[in-house]
Design a protein around this nucleic acid. Structure first.
Length: 862
RNA sequence: GGAUGCUUAGCUCAGUUGGGAGAGCAUCGCCUUUACACGGCGGAGGUCGUGGGUUCGAGUCCCUCAGCAUCCACCA
């Protein structure tokens, strides 16, 4: 006896993954089969994986294992992302803790540290993939900074530049003063902060007693004011247009100009314009050809030339400046407000809009191409569908993408500037006369390289076998939170460079939240470590939970109870296998099912099994893993364990019975159940599979069960369902009459079906000492109407209780009859509903009517 | 301000084209039946957020309102 009473996840999981990996089961390449390819969303090498990765990779792995079992050549391609800003933030913090920083170290040494860091965390990530059981093809593993990838990034940059889709320009960008780098729009997180609205007097130069009231939330930028702007249609201010005011921050004279951009209704209707420090002001400044003084350094301190304010931190400067203006009598009031303030996603620093020279991707033509493609039949199919709108909306109004970052960890921008002329050179190698050039100091935005992931990992721009075979990929699985970060960018880069969408389907899943529905975060300390869950319940249970706890695209709340439920379910399967294996004779060899000699119950379970296979397969093909698992769950508990296994004991315990078919059926059903649960929970199923009398080297080589019409026996199904109803009715009768479950009863069965073949089952499970068929004398019996069958139970209960029961049934039937009469009496229903429906209803009615009359008779008899 | 989603049993959530409301947990009763007491058997519990509409028929389709959540844009 190999299986223990309770399945032990640690023993079951031990050693299996390495065995699979070493045997090469994860390696794609069988060209006789149709391919199915999927790339892992490369995790950042910043730390260990969290439960978000766990749900993402679980869904991917379920899909891959299912497809492999269905006969596909599956490629599940692994890899990591260098994650420029995220990783550099961590390394910077580490250096700081060691009392140094990247500038002290210098670029070369910093990169050495960074690569060591990458090595360390990539090892952790590998261990976690192993724990999760992912069938990743490690022979094809990639990293976004490996050599081939660098070449891909270079090729993309050069090509886009040559096409005029990349340009270098001075624009307002979102600047992170902590990381000292530019950011793209999507790397900003807006949070509601308390702030102040400061109202100042901008006095007229000619008439200092008069002033314009100007409000700002960022007074420190006033050093960069170049004018005051009012709407030309604003009657209050028309007379001031063209006059000069004094900037209360630095007493400079600045003009009042008119621009329709200003909203008359908003605030005081007059605004200061600081073109180098605000995106809207920048537009006005550019339109009016203004100077654009930069008054802040990239680290958030005030620029030189501002007297005592220079070198002050921006927030410190704000305080002092406001106080100084107040003392000069130019502060009107301070209003407390709540407003949304942009923070850097990585460093959490308040983002500063800053004029600077950066590289940009021109988004408009690119976005249009995506929108055009998405309107064709080749479009990317989003599951659930509604997430397509998220992509489209973003594509419709996206701004140019700032791709340069003032960081060191990443792909260095392959541009050399001439020291003497305006010329620039794009090359992935240093020019021979390097003394005349200097290289761009910046690196690319991480997403600039991750956008190439689905094709660069397969060898592009080289013409490789893998690229030809596995691109475009079939599926991308990811959370809705990174649709625009990543999905959109892969889409347009792929269209640009391969003329194809990078994937056929995109399966979007939700976020895993804590048990109260809050986002998991470090600051709340409410994160769930998947490794802890695996330790306690096993990875099979965790995977089952993650894949089935929600419908597609919906967030799930982490619920330990449900993980435990999954574990109990797996234990149920474990024990059903144990039961079957312990009943097989010594040295049993798998036999064939002889359809001619199958008994009714065998036919029943085979029929149910085939129907289940059919439904489960359909759901799996639609990535409806919640539905697929639910169908299987119901089959396993209700049909297989609670009913068929119990019934099979009749045959198994009968010394004279021919058990060949039952053995074969038990094994067939068990194997099919194992295969259907296997993609969700591969370890326990492998363990059981290898105990079967006949098996391949691993469940990973086994095929998914196919629907076989030859095993559909609807007659037996009907009879078995009646049998189930008989047993349930008798049990129910006993329970509601305070009879022990094993109290013996005598019954009579009058049926249009031939139930005699089921007598043994009835005797055993209803504890019926006396079973008679088709008896006319039913005196003293209570009757129950079942499908085509009347069940009579010899009643020993006193009459009043019996009468109550009969009256109960009578009123239920009366309700049914009125309902049915109303329907059938409704000409609309009779004429418009489908014929089948009407027929069904008529049949029901006749049935109810007959039952009703029976009951009336009995009540009268009493 | 714009968009999307959610509202179903005490709790957490399923419910695939409209054809008599489901699961798990919790709860109540019974059961030492040799696969499983992390089990088995049986029960109780819902006017499917509000108000309308379409339909013979609506948890399911359309409109209204309310509450909650998320995303986007946020304005000096």
């Amino acid at each position: 006896m190999a299986l223990e009473k309770r399945y032990n996840h640690k023993e079951v999981e031990a050693g299996k993954y390495l065995n699979w990996k070493n045997k090469g089961y994860f390696t794609a390449g069988d060209k006789t089969k149709e391919k199915f390819s999927i790339v892992i969303p490369p995790p950042n090498v910043t730390g260990k994986l969290h439960i978000g990765h766990a749900i993402d990779t679980t869904i991917q792995d379920i899909t891959c294992r299912y497809k492999k079992a269905k006969g596909f050549d599956v490629l599940y391609l692994p890899g990591c992302d260098h994650a420029g800003i995220a990783t550099q933030a961590k390394i910077d913090a580490k250096l700081k803790a060691e009392g140094t920083n990247r500038y002290e170290l210098g670029r070369e040494k910093f990169l050495k540290v960074a690569f060591e860091w990458k090595k360390e965390y990539s090892e952790i990530i590998h261990q976690q993939w192993e724990k999760m059981g992912l069938m990743l093809d490690y022979t094809r593993e990639r990293f976004t900074l490996d050599e081939g990838f660098n070449h891909a990034v270079y090729t993309v940059f050069k090509t886009l530049y040559d096409k005029g889709l990349i340009y270098r320009g001075e624009r307002i960008v979102n600047y992170d003063p902590e990381m000292k780098t530019a950011l793209s729009n999507v790397e900003i997180v807006y949070k509601e902060d308390k702030g102040n609205f400061f109202y100042f007097k901008y006095r007229l130069k000619e008439e200092p007693e008069k002033y314009l009231e100007i409000a700002t939330t960022r007074p420190e930028t006033m050093f960069g004011d170049t004018c005051v702007v009012v709407n030309p249609n604003d009657e209050r201010y028309q007379k001031y247009i063209g006059k000069t005011v004094i900037n209360p921050a630095n007493n400079q004279e600045i003009p009042i100009i008119a621009d329709e951009y200003v909203d008359i209704e908003f605030g005081t209707g007059a605004m200061k314009c600081t073109p180098a420090h605000d995106p809207n002001d920048f537009i006005i400044g550019k339109k009016n050809n203004m100077k654009m003084p930069i008054i802040m350094n990239v680290d958030g301190t005030m620029a030189d030339g501002l007297g005592k304010y220079s070198k002050l931190d921006r927030f410190e400067c704000r305080k002092i400046l406001v106080n100084d203006i107040k003392e000069a009598g130019n502060l009107i009031k301070i209003e407390e407000i709540k407003h949304q303030v942009g923070h850097s996603e990585r460093s959490d620093a308040v983002v500063e809009p800053l004029l600077s020279k950066q590289w940009f991707v021109k988004m408009k033509p690119i976005a249009e191409e995506v929108l055009r493609h998405q309107a064709t039949d080749d479009k990317v199919n989003f599951v659930p569908k509604r997430f397509e709108k998220v992509l489209i909306r973003w594509m419709e109004d996206c701004e140019d993408w700032c791709i340069s970052r003032q960081l060191w960890w990443g792909h260095r921008i392959p541009v050399y500037y001439s020291k003497t002329t305006e010329k620039l050179l794009i090359s992935d190698k240093a020019p021979e006369d390097i003394e005349n050039w200097y290289q761009d100091e910046d690196v690319f935005d991480t997403w600039f390289s991750s956008a190439l992931w689905p094709f660069a990992t397969l060898g592009w721009p080289l013409k490789t076998e893998d690229y030809d075979r596995y691109f475009p990929t079939n599926l991308l699985v990811t959370g809705y939170d990174i649709i625009f970060f990543w999905v959109a960018r892969m889409y347009f880069q792929s269209l640009n460079f391969t003329n194809k969408a990078p994937f056929k389907d995109v399966l979007i899943h939700g976020l895993v939240r804590d048990s109260k529905g809050r986002k998991m975060s470090k600051s709340l300390g409410n994160g769930v470590d998947p490794i802890d869950v695996i330790e306690k319940y096993g990875v099979d249970s965790l995977r089952y939970f993650l894949a089935t706890a929600a419908s597609p695209g919906m967030d799930i709340k982490y619920n330990e109870e449900k993980v435990a439920v999954a574990s109990n379910y797996l234990n149920k399967i474990w024990n059903s296998a144990r039961f079957i294996l312990m009943n097989l004779p010594e040295g049993y060899k798998e036999g064939k099912i002889n359809v001619k000699t199958l008994n009714e119950l065998d036919k029943f379970i085979l029929t149910k099994l085939e129907k289940t296979i059919n439904k489960v397969t359909k759901a799996m093909d639609k990535y409806d893993y919640g539905i697929a698992s639910k169908i299987l769950y119901d089959f396993v508990y209700d049909d297989f364990c609670s009913f068929y296994l119990e019934m099979s004991k009749v045959t198994l315990n009968d010394e004279n019975a021919d058990k060949k078919n039952t053995y074969a059926v038990l094994l067939k059903v068990l194997k099919a159940v194992l295969m259907m649960i296997y993609p969700f929970s591969p370890f326990i199923t492998e363990e059981i599979y290898l105990q079967l009398p006949e098996h391949l080297e691993s469940i990973m080589l086994e095929s998914y069960p196919e629907y076989e019409k030859a095993f559909i026996f609807n007659d037996s199904l009907e009879k078995a369902e009646v049998l189930r109803a008989i047993i349930e009715t008798i049990r129910n009768y006993k329970a509601s009459n305070d009879l022990a479950p094993n109290a013996e009863v005598s019954i009579i069965l009058n049926s249009k079906l031939n139930l005699k073949t089921l007598e043994a089952y009835i005797r055993r499970f209803a504890f019926a000492k006396d079973v008679k068929f088709d008896e006319e004398n039913v005196d003293g019996c209570i009757s129950f109407e079942l499908n085509k069958t009347t069940l009579f139970i010899k009643n020993d209960i006193d009459k009043t209780e019996l009468l109550n029961k009969l009256n109960d049934q009578k009123s239920k039937l009366e309700n049914e009859l009125t309902r049915s009469e109303r329907m059938l009496g409704n000409p609309n229903f009779v004429n418009k509903a489908s014929k089948e429906k009407v027929e069904q209803e008529k049949e029901k009615y006749a049935n109810y009517k007959a039952q009703y009359e029976e009951i009336l008779k009995k009540i009268n008899n009493l």
